[in-house]
C-alpha cells in the first residue's frame, strides 16, 4: 500500500527532479542541484528470515525505516525473504532498480551482500550484525554483551531468590554472546547468583516459537528463577507472557518491550538497529555516506537498557545508581565485558 502509489509517482517525480535539475543548473548553479540530487534517494531494507513484524530485531529495522519516511517523506522499499537463496536475488533486484542505500538486516546476509555489492560498486550497501569488507559497504555490529551485562545486573538485583534465567532463540554464537554478558553482569552483583540458560532450538524456527519460549520460562520459574531475560526474537513474546502470568519479571530485547506487559517487564536490552537503519538512510540523503565498519556499544549508544514509565516502579534508585556506575565503567574501560565471539568461550 505504502509503496505502490510511490512507485507510480516516481516517474513524474523523476521528471520533476530532472526539470528542476536543468533549471537549477541553468539558473543557479551547482548547489541547488546537489540538494535535489541528495533528496532523491531510494532506500531499501531487506529483512532476515524472522520477518518484518517479529516484535524484536527485524521490527527494530522496520521502525527505523518508518521513522525515516515519516521524518523526510522519502519512501523506501522492503522485502521479507522466504529462504536463503532469495537473499542474493532480492539484493540484486533492489540494486537493479536503482535502490540505494540497501540495508541488509542480519548476519546471514553477509555472503549475499558481499557478492551483490561487488556487482554493483556504485550502490551503497549496509549490513547489520556482520562485517563485509568492501568499499561500498557499511558494516554495523553491536556489542550486545555490554547491554546484556547491564540487564544481567538489573536481573540479579531485582531477584529475590538469587536465581535468574536466560532464554535464547537459536543456539548460535551470537546468542551465546548475549548469554555470556548477562551471566557476567548477574555474577558481578551477586557472586552466588545462579543463572539458568536455555536455548529454544537449533533451527530457525526457534526464533518464532512463543509457546516453547513460555514453557522454558515456566520451567525456569519452577527451578526458582524470578527474572528471565530473553534473546529469542518472536519466541520471547511467550517468555514475557509467561513471566507476566506467573507474577515474575521478564527482560525484553532489541526493541523496547517494556510496554508489552507494564510492570512485569523489568527492562529491555535495546539494540538500536532502528538507529543504524535510520542513520544509514539519513547519511545517504545528506550525501554523508561512509563505508567501513562501526562497532556500536554502550559508549556509542548502540546498545542500552530501557527505562520508561512502564518500568520505573521496578527500578529502585539503588539499582539505577549501580547500573549507571557500571555503565560508566564499561564506557571508560574500567569494566571489561567478555565477548563470547572473541574466543568462542564463556569463562563464567
Amino acid at each position: 500500500m505504502r509503496n505502490r502509489p510511490a512507485g507510480r509517482l516516481k516517474v513524474s517525480e523523476d521528471i520533476q527532479v530532472k526539470k528542476l535539475l536543468t533549471i537549477s543548473v541553468a539558473l543557479a548553479g551547482v548547489a541547488f542541484s546537489t540538494a535535489a540530487m541528495a533528496a532523491d534517494i531510494k532506500p531499501a531494507v531487506l529483512y532476515d528470515l524472522g520477518g518484518k513484524f517479529d516484535k524484536s530485531f527485524n521490527e527494530a529495522a522496520y521502525t527505523g525505516a518508518e521513522k525515516f519516511t515519516a521524518d523526510t517523506g522519502v519512501a523506501y522499499r522492503d522485502f521479507e525473504i522466504q529462504n536463503d537463496s532469495q537473499r542474493e536475488q532480492a539484493l540484486r533486484n533492489f540494486a537493479k532498480r536503482g535502490q540505494s542505500p540497501i540495508v541488509a538486516i542480519g548476519f546471514s546476509q553477509a555472503n549475499a551482500v558481499e557478492k551483490v555489492a561487488k556487482e554493483f560498486p556504485d550502490t551503497q550497501f549496509a549490513i547489520v550484525d556482520m562485517v563485509v569488507d568492501l568499499p561500498n559497504v557499511r558494516s554495523i555490529v553491536f556489542k550486545e554483551h555490554e547491554g546484556s551485562y547491564i540487564v544481567g545486573m538489573l536481573a540479579a538485583m531485582a531477584s529475590e531468590t538469587g536465581k535468574v534465567g536466560f532464554i535464547g532463540g537459536m543456539d548460535i554464537p551470537l546468542i551465546r554472546k548475549f548469554a555470556c554478558g548477562y551471566k557476567q553482569g548477574a555474577l558481578a552483583v551477586n557472586a552466588d547468583a545462579e543463572v539458568f540458560e536455555n536455548m529454544t532450538g537449533t533451527t530457525g524456527a526457534a526464533w518464532n516459537d512463543p509457546v516453547k519460549g513460555g514453557e522454558l520460562a515456566k520451567s525456569q520459574f519452577d527451578r526458582g528463577a524470578d527474572v528471565v531475560y530473553h534473546a529469542a526474537g518472536g519466541t520471547g513474546i511467550g517468555v514475557l507472557q509467561a513471566a507476566a502470568d506467573a507474577g515474575k519479571l521478564g527482560i525484553g530485547v532489541d526493541s523496547n518491550q517494556n510496554a508489552l506487559h507494564p510492570g512485569s517487564v523489568l527492562s529491555s536490552m535495546l539494540k538500536r538497529v532502528d538507529v543504524a537503519v535510520y542513520s544509514a538512510f539519513e547519511d545517504a540523503k545528506n550525501d554523508a555516506w561512509t563505508s567501513g565498519f562501526s562497532v556500536l556499544g554502550l559508549a556509542e549508544g548502540g546498545v542500552d537498557w530501557a527505562l520508561d514509565e512502564n518500568n520505573e516502579k521496578l527500578i529502585t534508585p539503588e539499582m539505577k545508581a549501580a547500573v549507571d556506575k557500571a555503565r560508566a565503567g564499561i564506557v571508560s574501560g574500567t569494566i571489561t565485558v567478555h565477548d563470547y565471539m572473541a574466543d568462542q568461550n564463556c569463562p563464567f
Binding site: M1, R2, G51, R77, D78, F79, E80, Q82, Q86
Partner: peptide, 21 residues
C-alpha cells in the same frame, strides 16, 4: 510459485511473503 511469488511480493508490498505461502 516460488520464483513468481517472490517477484510478486517484491512488486506488491501489500502481498507479503505470508500471502505467497
Amino acid at each position: 510459485l516460488y520464483q513468481g511469488g517472490a517477484e510478486l511480493s517484491f512488486e506488491k508490498p501489500a502481498i507479503t511473503r505470508d500471502m505467497i505461502i
